[in-house]
Simulated assay, not measured.
Amino acid sequence: MNKNKISEKQSELKSWLKKIGLSQNEFAALFLEETYEYVTDKEIKRFQESFKKQLRRKSTKPERIEAYLEYLYTTEKFKEAGYIKPQSFSGDILEPIAAKMMRKISKELTEKIEL
């Protein structure tokens, strides 16, 4: 995945957090507490700082951001906000230019719905 795709995924995660009213710190704490049985306040603070850096760095592994997104889709806050996990299909059916146009249209529709 190129740096631009990572940037897009980071932006997507930040956008979802904003839409459902979760701060980056709140999300990081939830994620850590869900991932590990027992965590200390110190570990949570450390992870919150690490999480914020991961949302800025272009060297963040895309799998890491995907894991955060997948977790986000399962949270109560996400469901309570009335959202469902986004689905996308990209196969060999569409030419690359058509697929790009479809993503653009989808993004524009989503933005209009959110208004």
Results as ranks from 00 to 15, higher is better:
residue 69 L to N: 01
residue 42 K to Q: 03
residue 43 E to H: 06
residue 17 L to Y: 04
residue 26 E to W: 01
residue 63 E to M: 05
residue 84 I to K: 09
residue 5 K to P: 01
residue 26 E to S: 02
residue 46 R to E: 08
residue 60 T to R: 03
residue 104 K to N: 14
residue 4 N to M: 11
residue 19 K to E: 13
residue 6 I to K: 10
residue 51 F to C: 02
residue 4 N to S: 12
residue 43 E to W: 12
residue 110 T to Q: 13
residue 33 E to G: 12
residue 109 L to C: 11
residue 72 L to C: 05
residue 48 Q to P: 01
residue 15 S to Y: 12
residue 9 K to N: 15
residue 34 E to H: 15
residue 65 I to K: 07
residue 55 L to N: 00
residue 87 Q to W: 01
residue 17 L to K: 03
residue 17 L to N: 05
residue 14 K to E: 11
residue 91 G to I: 04
residue 45 K to R: 04
residue 43 E to G: 08
residue 91 G to M: 00
residue 69 L to E: 07
residue 83 Y to H: 10
residue 10 Q to A: 02
residue 44 I to N: 10
residue 36 Y to I: 13
residue 91 G to F: 00
residue 31 F to V: 07
residue 109 L to F: 09
residue 95 E to R: 02
residue 23 S to M: 05
residue 106 S to F: 13
residue 52 K to N: 02
residue 68 Y to I: 09
residue 73 Y to D: 11
residue 63 E to T: 02
residue 54 Q to D: 11
residue 102 M to A: 12
residue 59 S to Y: 01
residue 35 T to W: 09
residue 84 I to Q: 06
residue 94 L to W: 08
residue 5 K to G: 08
residue 11 S to H: 09
residue 88 S to F: 05
residue 53 K to P: 00
residue 26 E to F: 02
residue 12 E to Q: 13
residue 85 K to T: 03
residue 83 Y to M: 08
residue 73 Y to Q: 11
residue 44 I to S: 09
residue 64 R to G: 00
residue 76 E to W: 08
residue 47 F to M: 04
residue 98 A to W: 03
residue 113 I to D: 06
residue 20 I to M: 05
residue 35 T to R: 14
residue 47 F to V: 05
residue 82 G to C: 11
residue 84 I to L: 06
residue 20 I to C: 10
residue 107 K to R: 12
residue 29 A to C: 07
residue 21 G to Q: 07
residue 12 E to W: 13
residue 61 K to R: 08
residue 83 Y to G: 04
residue 10 Q to Y: 00
residue 110 T to N: 10
residue 108 E to Q: 15
residue 62 P to C: 03
residue 108 E to I: 13
residue 104 K to H: 14
residue 97 I to P: 00
residue 33 E to T: 13
residue 41 D to K: 02
residue 54 Q to A: 07
residue 44 I to W: 06
residue 109 L to N: 10
residue 44 I to G: 14
residue 78 F to S: 13
residue 94 L to D: 08
residue 110 T to C: 06
residue 16 W to Y: 14
residue 52 K to D: 00
residue 52 K to H: 00
residue 88 S to T: 05
residue 22 L to Q: 09
residue 18 K to Y: 07
residue 33 E to C: 15
residue 82 G to P: 12
residue 13 L to I: 10
residue 68 Y to F: 14
residue 11 S to Q: 11
residue 30 L to G: 08
residue 38 Y to M: 15
residue 82 G to I: 10
residue 107 K to V: 09
residue 100 K to H: 12
residue 76 E to G: 12
residue 115 L to H: 12
residue 49 E to Q: 03
residue 101 M to R: 15
residue 56 R to T: 04
residue 110 T to E: 14
residue 53 K to T: 03
residue 86 P to W: 02
residue 56 R to K: 08
residue 32 L to S: 02
residue 83 Y to F: 08
residue 52 K to L: 00
residue 18 K to M: 05
residue 93 I to T: 00
residue 44 I to Q: 10
residue 100 K to T: 11
residue 60 T to S: 08
residue 6 I to W: 06
residue 80 E to Q: 15
residue 39 V to Y: 01
residue 106 S to R: 15
residue 69 L to D: 07
residue 49 E to C: 05
residue 55 L to R: 00
residue 104 K to R: 12
residue 70 E to R: 04
residue 12 E to T: 14
residue 81 A to M: 15
residue 61 K to N: 04
residue 27 F to V: 00
residue 77 K to D: 14
residue 113 I to E: 09
residue 60 T to F: 01
